[in-house]
Amino acid sequence: MRFHTRKWVKPEDLNPNGTLFGGRLLAWIDEEAALYAIIQLENPKVVTKFISEIDFKSSAKKGDIVEIGIEVVKFGRSSITLKSEVRNKMTRETILTVDNIVMVNLDKNGNALPHGKQEIEFVKDRLDSDED
Rank of each mutant, 00 (worst) to 15 (best):
I70S: 00
F75W: 06
E12H: 12
I38M: 07
D107T: 02
L41V: 03
A27H: 05
D128C: 02
W8I: 10
K7W: 05
F122Y: 13
N43Q: 11
V98F: 00
E42W: 03
T81G: 02
E42S: 09
E53S: 15
E31C: 01
Q40E: 14
K62Q: 13
A33P: 02
N105P: 08
K117L: 04
V123G: 06
R6C: 08
T5A: 05
G22L: 07
K117V: 09
D128W: 09
K124T: 05
A60V: 05
K49C: 12
K62N: 09
I38N: 06
E119Y: 13
E32G: 05
A112E: 15
I68G: 01
E53K: 15
K45A: 15
L20R: 10
M103I: 03
D13N: 09
K62C: 10
R2A: 09
V86D: 03
E119H: 09
V123Q: 13
K83N: 07
F75H: 12
V102W: 02
G116R: 14
R24A: 08
D128L: 11
L113E: 13
L25Q: 08
L127V: 12
L14H: 03
Q40T: 02
L26C: 14
K89N: 10
R6H: 07
E31Q: 14
A27C: 06
F21I: 13
T97C: 05
F21P: 08
D125E: 06
V104D: 05
F56I: 12
E12N: 12
D125P: 09
F3P: 01
T48A: 07
D55I: 14
R2N: 15
V86T: 06
V73W: 04
K62Y: 10
G76F: 02
R2Q: 04
N111E: 12
W28K: 08
K74Y: 10
V98N: 01
M1W: 11
T97H: 03
K89H: 14
G23K: 11
I51F: 08
N100R: 15
D130A: 15
V46L: 06
H4D: 11
F75Q: 07
K49S: 14
I68Y: 00
S58Q: 11
V9M: 07
V98T: 05
E121M: 09
E85M: 03
M90V: 14
M90C: 13
K45Q: 15
K62P: 00
T91E: 13
L96N: 14
G18Y: 10
N88D: 06
A33L: 08
G69Q: 05
E119I: 07
K62M: 14
Y36C: 13
F21N: 06
D99N: 07
D30N: 15
D125F: 01
S84D: 07
G63W: 02
E42Q: 14
D125N: 11
P114F: 15
T19K: 04
S84G: 12
I51M: 15
A60P: 00
E32S: 14
K89A: 04
Q40H: 10
I54H: 01
R6L: 10
K83I: 01
I54Y: 02
R24Q: 12
I38F: 01
